[in-house]
């Protein structure tokens, strides 16, 4: 049986994108951005603190890094919890040693379970980013609108109450969104989201509740992607971060300020045999002049100031 005739109809075949969420825009043709102090690269470090529940549901899919064996999977539960108990402190120390800032994405369950960890971030003057409720509570296509609104509210209310910060950045668990996630985020006072990976710079995103900005949070340069997903070595992770930084640093000379995002999972990078890789990558970046260590909100504010 042949495919239906509709299969060769292309209603969204037109100039620009096949949706109305954002405009088609070529990175190289935008107005260059100038970072404070004339810095070439804004370094945006995003440690992500996750709670993988022991009863993590399999539907609609399991967030990568989740439970594997039949219940109860103590093995993966504790391997991930290692990040919040031990690994994260090595990561924070590595940043402190170089005087670097972070925007720390929290599943709200992590903050609820370990408020001392949240306090350590707030006391450093770092930014708290909303990371969803936990790694079993995904946002996904076809999910119920009221359920999603409640899930977003739960995460934001917990993090705002415990941190005292406005909490205006958002990273969905597994970067997964429903059709409505951006609308519901803007409605809840979120100003930037970290799920889309189509740019090296921020770009404006339309929602039913007003404007939102997509920030260039990385998936490709993420420690979980490279070490846990691709199974590359620690040395290979450093090499890729260094190559990325060197490329952006060189391009910034002619193209305006760029952003290097490092997405760090303490259950990956905070292991004793891996932390030196993160330290080496950060040291390479930090020894360059013209690096601006900043939070997501600071980068967004500076970028917004220069638009229009």
């Amino acid at each position: 049986m042949a495919l239906p005739d509709d299969y060769l109809k292309y209603p969204m075949r037109r100039y620009g994108m096949d949706h109305d969420r954002y405009d088609w825009s070529i990175l190289l043709r935008r107005k260059p951005v100038v970072w404070p102090g004339g810095a070439r690269v804004a370094l945006w470090v995003v440690p992500t603190l996750e709670f993988f529940p022991l009863d993590q549901p399999a539907k609609p899919f399991k967030a990568p890094g989740g439970m594997v064996t039949p219940y109860p999977d103590l093995r993966h539960y504790t391997l991930r919890d290692y990040g919040n108990r031990v690994g994260v402190w090595r990561v924070f120390q590595a940043l402190d040693d170089l005087g670097l800032k972070a925007s720390v994405a929290f599943n709200s369950k992590v903050a609820e379970r370990y408020p001392l960890l949240l306090q350590a971030v707030v006391q450093r003057g770092w930014e708290v980013v909303a990371g969803g409720v936990d790694m079993g509570r995904l946002h996904f296509g076809g999910m119920d609108e009221a359920a999603e609104r409640a899930q977003i509210a739960e995460c934001l209310s917990v993090l705002r109450a415990l941190s005292g910060q406005p909490v205006t950045g958002w990273l969905s668990p597994a970067k997964s969104q429903s059709e409505r996630t951006p609308d519901l985020l803007a409605e809840a006072g979120v100003r930037y989201m970290c799920d889309w990976i189509n740019d090296d710079m921020p770009f404006p995103f339309r929602t039913a509740s007003g404007p939102l900005t997509a920030m260039p949070h990385t998936l490709e340069l993420d420690d979980q992607t490279i070490i846990f997903g691709y199974k590359h070595s620690e040395e290979d992770f450093v090499e890729q971060v260094v190559d990325a930084f060197d490329t952006l640093y060189a391009e910034a000379e002619t193209q305006g300020g760029r952003i290097l995002c490092l997405s760090i999972h303490p259950w990956v990078s905070g292991q004793p045999h891996r932390i030196a890789a993160l330290e080496a990558a950060l040291a390479h970046i930090a020894r360059h002049k013209g690096v601006w260590s900043a939070t997501g909100s600071e980068i967004l504010a500076e970028w917004e100031r220069q638009q229009g």
């Binding site: 609609p60 296509g141 970067k175 969104q177 059709e179 889309w196 990976i197 189509n198 740019d199 998936l219």
Partner: peptide
């Protein structure tokens, strides 16, 4: 499930 934001936006990176 659609929208697969990560897979879609990853490809879009190539063009932008």
């Amino acid at each position: 499930p659609i929208p697969d934001v990560v897979a879609y936006s990853h490809r879009d990176y190539g063009n932008r």
